[in-house]
């Protein structure tokens, strides 16, 4: 197995007074696609927010590329290579499509992972046509592509994608699946939170099942077929 790029050890997290993560531990290797699955409210989104330093309080050890980042303030997390695509997409209404795309500052000069604007527009041709439109005038699918595209420019190599298939038409979801495969082929490490298991199933190398704010099970792609019954039970479908 290749080097671990992201490691959570016994992460506990709080929103105000409420204790929402209970000892989350997981490792992600370079170039891997992992998916956090579980019921609504199980804490999957919260794990991504904990990694980005967006909770009110967090304990435990978070390391990126082997460096301990537990005490790093939120605005310094991106520079260790994290690109965050939030739930609800986080497109800024007062910015044009292009301004949204150019907003995240480059985090490392000359990073090989950073995609050029041409490469990004080749991957998402719609965004080029809509460059001057206000961000929230875009369709749901275009907004989702914009939210992914804007973290590919910066040199981030670990992508945290939160519910990217949510509420989108099947044809768009297929496009996103193709995008994920292409990003994996380019060497990006991807952690995706998914409600849509059928979307995540063929894409991820490993699945972490999240329940009550902790990891209850880890399943490899190779064991997926054999564990389907368990997964159905966990997801409650």
């Amino acid at each position: 197995m290749s080097e671990t790029v992201l490691s959570l050890k016994d992460i506990n997290g709080w929103y105000g007074e409420s204790h929402v993560l209970h000892g989350v531990s997981l490792d992600v290797a370079r170039g891997e696609v992992v998916s956090l699955i579980g019921r609504n409210g199980a804490g999957r989104t919260t794990i991504l927010r904990a990694i980005m330093g967006m909770l009110d309080q967090r304990t435990g050890t978070l390391s990126v590329m082997g460096r301990d980042m537990s005490a790093t303030p939120a605005h310094r997390m991106a520079e260790c290579g994290l690109g965050y695509c939030p739930e609800e997409r986080g497109i800024f209404a007062s910015l044009s499509c292009e301004e949204n795309l150019m907003l995240p500052p480059p985090i490392r000069a000359g990073s090989q992972m950073a995609m050029s604007l041409d490469e990004i527009y080749a991957m998402f041709p719609n965004l080029k046509d809509r460059a001057q439109s206000p961000g929230t005038r875009l369709s749901g699918g275009e907004q989702q592509m914009l939210a992914i595209a804007r973290i590919l420019r910066t040199g981030a190599d670990i992508l945290l994608l939160d519910e990217i298939s949510e509420g989108l038409a099947p044809v768009i979801v297929q496009t996103l699946a193709r995008v994920i495969r292409e990003l994996k082929a380019r060497g990006f490490t991807i952690i995706m939170v998914e409600q849509n298991f059928r979307f995540a199933a063929p894409l991820a190398d490993r699945f972490f099942i999240i329940e009550h704010g902790s990891v209850v099970e880890e399943i490899h792609q190779a064991d997926l077929a054999a564990r389907m019954d368990d997964i159905r039970t966990w997801l409650g479908v």
Binding site: M52, M54, A74, H75, M77, F92, S94, L95, L103, P105
Partner: peptide, 20 residues
């Protein structure tokens, strides 16, 4: 643009690495 974005959603702008 960073300022307008920061007015809308400062937490996300921080997550992009801007010193909000």
């Amino acid at each position: 643009a960073i300022l307008r974005a920061g007015t809308e959603n400062p937490a996300l702008v921080k997550a992009f690495g801007v010193n909000v």
